[in-house]
Design a protein around this nucleic acid. Structure first.
Lengths: 138, 138
DNA sequence: TTCCTTGCAAATCGTTTGCATAATG
DNA sequence: CATTATGCAAACGATTTGCAAGGAA
């Protein structure tokens, strides 16, 4: 990989992501940051999101809506997807990979980690407060 | 949802998926089935994959390559993604949702289930037998 | 006959890329 | 100065959609 040079755009994207508790898409990031820097281009946002993901400073989430979401919190945690409103929230669990009680003995690879996506109804939807925007988990 | 009518195309897609032990994309399904039915169209494949997913007869997997994969095995099982060659394989674990040792007490939703994606090196890549096709898990 | 499904092609949408210019080290 | 990053617009690839015709209940 080539050496990284400093860039204001990348800094802005990273700090924006670290501030948010949700998981915005490239387009959301672009719209928000464009307010402060009207010259910002969408391609730059995508390029930097890829760089930041590659160097492990952010996490890319592929969820059921088919659009990439990004998470500025790279600490180990899982995600919860509401099957009704589509909202994605952090979910901190005590799970560790070793707690998996048994792994298929036929598996001959080497596990480095895992991501778990929980699904169900979020607090609001449980009480029927939101409009439908159904997502099929996967 | 509207009533489903029988269709040869949907049947073919479903039985094709149930036969495969891997997780083909819409395009792979299309190419394979087109050999037997040259009139088949890609749009039909996509439409039926959506229907089958909605009625729960197949599972859609969104993995790190950004293309949808489909799984004809809807029994509870997880998946393993090789970070080197990008291959996706089934991984049967003894995990049950209750084994999660603790859930964030701030979470006020209702969990119905979860999917776990493991990542690491598959058996072949562990031994350096494959060509690189790096995937970033997410 | 009614309504769902198909094939085809065009449209959509998220993401990537080429290129000339600007910024960084 | 050498190299990476940017903005812009065009290109791309996966998926969806409109429409007229075909097939199932």
């Amino acid at each position: 990989m080539q050496t990284l040079k400093h860039s204001k755009q990348r800094d802005a994207i990273l700090s924006f992501l670290m501030m948010r508790k949700d998981h915005p898409t490239a387009d959301t990031i672009y719209s928000c940051l464009k307010e402060e820097n009207p010259n910002l281009s969408l391609g730059t946002v995508y390029r930097n999101l890829n760089v930041l993901t590659e160097i492990g400073q952010i996490r890319r989430l592929r969820l059921s809506d088919g659009v990439d979401h990004f998470d500025g919190d790279i600490s180990p945690h899982d995600h919860f997807l509401c099957t009704k409103c589509g909202q994605v929230t952090d979910l901190h669990t005590g799970r560790k990979i070793m707690e998996v009680s048994s792994i298929d003995p036929a598996f001959d690879g080497q596990i480095e980690g895992c991501f778990t996506y929980f699904y169900g109804l979020c607090g609001n939807c449980k009480e029927g407060k939101t409009q439908e925007n159904r997502q099929i988990p996967g």
